[in-house]
């Protein structure tokens, strides 16, 4: 492969500059310029600006600031608001990952059967994925006020009969339900594709050998799905750690700060004014968390992918 580019016709009959490899590569450098410049200006600079100011006491408003080393970070870990937000995120992420895997795996396994209306089911289950998270959040906000309590009362389910958003414990689950309602769409489609990549004769051979459904699932289906399951875990973990839209639309962090996720806390601190360097330092902690999680899950995935069919 590498030889191909290196020996890209050095022996052309005509020596025009235009076609020469040298000229081509020069143009290729130019091709990368717009994106490189935009990436530097709109991503790298703000990111380093954030890292830089997280070590200062700049309020964002004043003209002066001092270097304070790790002071902001020290303060953050003594800040109950931040600790609570972080705990919310961790609990929420675990629940979201498990919920997403269970629901989408069940849906995918069911839709992989030979049942009527398969494509119709798939179209409907995927539809929430194309909507804006904020729209979904706002719609469910109304449903939790006007519709869910009526169902709770009719069915005699206590938790549902009052507005789930008004209570600290149930608000957690309310946000999770909405997130799953929309968030299972893509994983389900991915898992269906994974299931269809499993060779049918493997199942037949296992059946002849006397394996029951659960054994076939464990020994054949799961290994084939592992790369996809890993992808789902990575994306869902990131979504859980950085959740913002649903919470903004459903609870805005309430009731009584119970659902205030780190993303919302950072946003509030950034917008409030006067807490610039502090808000930046908070975001750095989220950064480290997401980076660690992504690193480990990606490492896990790339190992698994070697055994993928």
């Amino acid at each position: 492969m590498s030889a191909k580019t290196a020996t890209a016709r050095p022996d052309t009959s005509k020596p025009p500059k235009k076609g020469s490899l040298h000229h081509v590569v020069q143009v290729h450098y130019l091709f990368t310029l717009p994106i490189l410049i935009m990436y530097l200006v709109f991503f790298i600079v703000p990111m380093f600006m954030g890292i830089f100011y997280s070590f200062t006491d700049w309020s964002g408003l004043s003209s002066q600031f001092n270097f304070v080393g790790f002071d902001n970070y020290g303060k953050i870990f003594q800040d109950d608001d931040f600790i609570n937000a972080l705990l919310f995120n961790l609990k929420y992420t675990v629940a979201l990952v498990i919920g997403t895997l269970v629901v989408s795996l069940i849906l995918a396994l069911l839709m992989n059967q030979k049942i009527p209306f398969r494509t119709g089911f798939r179209s409907i289950f995927f539809f929430p994925a194309v909507l804006s998270g904020i729209t979904v959040g706002l719609i469910w906000n109304e449903l939790f006020l006007k519709v869910v309590p009526v169902f709770g009362q009719t069915l005699g389910i206590d938790i549902l009969s009052k507005s789930m958003l008004g209570n600290a414990t149930t608000a957690f689950w309310a946000v999770l339900i909405v997130n799953l309602w929309q968030g299972c769409a893509t994983p389900t489609v991915l898992l269906i594709a994974g299931l269809q990549s499993v060779p049918k004769d493997l199942y037949e051979a296992a059946t002849i050998d006397g394996a029951n459904a659960w054994q076939r699932f464990k020994a054949i289906t799961v290994p084939f799905l592992l790369p996809i399951i890993n992808i789902v875990i990575i994306t869902t973990t990131k979504a859980g750690l950085t959740i913002f839209d649903y919470i903004k639309a459903l609870t805005d962090g309430g009731p009584n700060k119970a659902t205030r996720a780190v993303g919302l806390l950072i946003y509030n601190d950034a917008m409030q004014g006067g807490k610039f360097s502090y808000a930046v330092a908070e975001s750095m902690i989220l950064f480290i968390l997401v980076a660690i999680v992504s690193f480990f899950t990606i490492k896990g995935t790339s190992n698994k992918e070697a055994g993928d069919a």
Binding site: Y39, F43, V45, P46, M47, M49, G50, Y53, G60, K238, L241, T242, F244, V262, G263, I266, Y267, D269, A270, M271, F276, A279, V280, S283, M284, L286, F287, V290, A291, S294, F295
Partner: peptide, 17 residues
Amino acid sequence: CAIFVPFQVIMVPLVIY
């Protein structure tokens, strides 16, 4: 690299920048 960086990291500087 940007894939690993959550949006919140550049969000705060962006407001001012």
